[in-house]
Design a protein around this nucleic acid. Structure first.
Lengths: 345, 345
DNA sequence: CTGAAAGCGCTTACAG
DNA sequence: CTGAAAGCGCTTACAG
């Protein structure tokens, strides 16, 4: 279609120069071309440009599931920032599978994306890590760490919120604090568990194994089962980490069992949600700045695209604890039970 | 990189033929090439292919907001189906603005997408409609209708569910049934209102203007305000149509006002959600097969890509009503009030 | 400041 | 069944 634009009287070269905002063009030529663009409703062929420049103004977003509140929100913010810079987002869900990630990575690379933003289902996966190291565009990781990969990342301080939360619960008198989170497959899972264990021992709380349940299945049923095993283990307070479906399942269990929040058991959700404030009582939560994560990821991506060889950068966001109505002192009898189970330790 | 693959001894032509699965290649040549692909870890340059074929294996998804449960779920299913066929999704949010849609459409077209799946913020917008008519790839509409546009579409029968819901409410004795939904900007808004009005008059219920509130703002505050004006207008039952944030706001209002569901007011949510079943009482809902919409959209898109000139196809999905625990007969006094307000009509 | 020319990596008639 | 050649729409040194 450049031929047509050439009909404005200048050469393809000049047209291309004004299209790319080169400073070396006479104002008249620029005006003629811009007018021609309007008149012919010219739309550049990005495939051709990409072929020449090897840049696509396309960035890939690879997440385990785009229909997850957290990833959807990240995608939204990422897209908003990126489109300001004229770059588009190619989104793909891996379905929590390394195979899905591998094939998505191939597809993204074939497409020549300028960068990828990725949240791995399991950042310890050898094959995926190896593939990522060979990926031919910058990668920015979302709260994941891949060994021997020099990548940008936006990391969340998952400790802060959990520590505040446990301190609060301990202050209320809880000694048997249960938590359900992901396995070590993911940085948040690791960090949450480390912070949980540190806090328990620092505060002298019950460290029974049963008070920690770990699973990478986030269905409603899994949430139900997690709550069950925590309660069975004697937990008087539960910290539930997972998407809303998972949390909903946990609440289901407490309700099925006739346990009232917070009288019978305290409950804290990791990451705020609509569900937290619609639930009665309103759920106390650990706040995580999800939108900010998306925005920072966009900024890192754009900076990296602008300058391939700048040193690797990492951005940090933190978490905090917001107490609403779902925590209270444990029931006296529960309390006794917990003390008893702690003594043997 | 084809040059390298050529080092397997055959010509670029042949390499290209096996890459594209042409039947006219000797088994040996095919084997040699495939082996070369493995060995060199060859990844095709899709930009180059696109430049030649004018096909990109990229489809655009344009929605008002990707961080909306419904659109996120549609994106997930769309992506899942599309990736099986080797096509990737370019997602972009318009932020509910026609300007956003216009610029997104330009970006998508420049990119040479093979098709677009779109949910417009306002399908009556002239400029957007005009742009869509000129769009150079097939468009698949998600429950929208754009005048004079021959496009594929997956349409929801929004009437079915609402009719069943109103009949149920009327059977319980409600006469003042309030509904909050979007303006006429969108097919569901129009259909919902038409079905609502038809049902009310058919059943001889209160048709006061105040019982219908329409807004395209879906914030929590908007939900709160909508519930307020419905209750102020004397509604004894409310049908809330909107994303969870909006519904949460409506529930907030009822709660702030000390109104219990379903004793003081019945409440029905349009589209099932986690929130509906976590809320106590569990919310009765109008079921909409969101995932199915995404899958059907993928199927239409793929079919259209395979055959540009097939006749336009439209797929339908329906809705139904699921009563849980949030509806009950109206309070006697409310009932009287409503009858009174109906008489003058 | 401008134009002619080469070339990015593919695919696809066209001959053989 | 296979290869040589042209060309998709751009950008970018290179001369002028």
């Amino acid at each position: 279609v450049l031929d047509l634009a050439r009909e404005t009287g200048v050469s393809k070269s000049t047209v291309s120069r004004v299209l790319n905002g080169s400073p070396n063009v006479s104002p008249e030529a620029r005006a003629r071309v811009n007018e021609g663009v309007k008149r012919l409703d010219y739309r550049i062929n990005l495939a051709a440009r990409s072929l020449r420049t090897t840049k696509t103004a396309l960035v890939g977003l690879l997440v385990p599931a785009i229909n997850n509140e957290v990833f959807a929100e990240i995608a939204e913010q990422l897209d908003a920032e990126l489109r300001k810079a004229g770059v588009m987002l190619a989104v793909t869900s891996s379905g929590w599978s390394p195979e899905g990630e591998l094939s998505a990575l191939d597809a993204l690379e074939s497409r020549g994306v300028d960068a990828i933003v990725v949240a791995l289902a399991d950042d310890r996966e050898r094959r995926v890590a190896a593939r990522l190291r060979l990926f031919d565009a910058p990668v920015v990781l979302l709260d994941r760490e891949v060994s021997r990969l020099q990548a940008e990342a936006v990391l969340t301080d998952n400790r802060a919120g959990i520590v505040l939360c446990i301190e609060h619960l301990a202050r209320l008198g809880h000694r048997a604090i249960g938590m359900s989170t992901s396995t070590d497959s993911t940085r948040p899972g690791r960090e949450l568990v480390a912070a949980y264990r540190d806090s328990l021992s620092r505060l002298g709380l019950d460290t029974s194994e049963g008070l920690l349940v770990r699973s990478d299945t986030y269905t409603r049923e899994a949430g139900w089962a997690a709550a069950k095993s925590l309660i069975d283990a004697g937990a008087t307070a539960i910290i539930g980490c997972g998407p809303v479906a998972f949390i909903a399942g946990a609440l289901d269990h407490l309700s099925d069992r006739g346990l009232d929040i917070p009288q019978d058991v305290s409950f804290v959700e990791y990451t705020d949600s609509e569900l937290a404030t619609v639930n009665r009582p309103r759920l106390s939560v650990i706040l995580r700045p999800v939108g900010e994560i998306g925005r920072l990821a966009a900024r890192l991506t754009l900076a990296r695209m602008a300058n391939e060889r700048q040193p690797r950068r990492v951005e940090f966001v933190s978490t905090s604890f917001l107490d609403r109505e779902s925590t209270a002192p444990p029931r006296p009898q529960s309390r006794k039970g917990t003390s008893a189970s702690k003594d043997p330790a």
